[in-house]
Design a binder for these strands. Sequence first.
DNA 1: TCTAAACCTTACTTTAAAGTCAACTTTAGT
DNA 2: ACTAAAGTTGACTTTAAAGTAAGGTTTAGA
Lengths: 159, 159
Amino acid sequence: MKISAQEEFGLRCLLQLARAQATGETLTLSQIAGREGISVANAGKLMWILNKAGLVQSQRGIKGGYHLARPTSEIHLNQVISVLDGERVDSHCKSYAGVLDACVHTGDCGIRPVIVELHQIVANALAGITLSQLLDTEANVDATLHQIQITKQRTEQRA
Amino acid sequence: MKISAQEEFGLRCLLQLARAQATGETLTLSQIAGREGISVANAGKLMWILNKAGLVQSQRGIKGGYHLARPTSEIHLNQVISVLDGERVDSHCKSYAGVLDACVHTGDCGIRPVIVELHQIVANALAGITLSQLLDTEANVDATLHQIQITKQRTEQRA
DNA sequence: TCTAAACCTTACTTTAAAGTCAACTTTAGT
DNA sequence: ACTAAAGTTGACTTTAAAGTAAGGTTTAGA
């Protein structure tokens, strides 16, 4: 229940494109990779996943590059996160019959609905945040950090 | 951003103890492992982590076993989840200076507050659920599955 | 006080995810 | 058409998480 490296870098790449989009420019793989400090190969893999999911669009050839497929206000975090960890195997089902449908969709084991519900809660929380909101957050780091401290204290009191 | 195998089985073990607690009994490692279909060694490791975190208490010796340290209504999911994946390394910081404090607490890189905020959102969502609520869910599987379908549709519309 | 049941702990093995590399395909410009 | 820049794809290597095993420590009861 943590954000993986792949999820984080994918999100970072999207934010790069979002900033570029403001001035109407596209970014090449080398530009994206260079700014994030990751290899071009790794950035290419991430962008391929995001492209396949319809979040970004690419232009091949000598004047090519990547740009967002939609405005930042229409990209919700649950889409980004679910795409980026979509390849991972479901841990619970692996230890059971091995057939995903056998327990996710029929609920034939007692705990499965609980796990599904937890994932649903997280997805709903993430669905409430858009890329444009994140950009605002980033532009106002100090205020956000302060807000996080308050939220943290509340959570600890609650706990 | 998924529940790992360790998190899931740890949660399952707690639910076992919660059910046992209703009748006042404690469970041995073999009982827990047997009911969950995992090895005694693995169950022992999980219970050791939960014990260290103060979520369960153990009694050694020939009449020993495990029981919950608190009532089910006082155990919130964010505690359980954070303890069970607490050992994992933070992916982002690994790729930077390598010192955790350098970016989590000072916010000296632009994206870090965003990631911290995402984790906080998830933690808050999980903090709103207790073990006793999960037990209710489990006891009413069909209704929950139906509810999940509705929530899912709403999320997709939103997306 | 001796023993067996049961928990505690560390080290090792296995397995899956993350990241890298290299060859291929496409496209804009000359 | 040719070429060089840029995206696409699949195979390979590395690394960290998950699971296993074995020995140690504690405790209740005979």
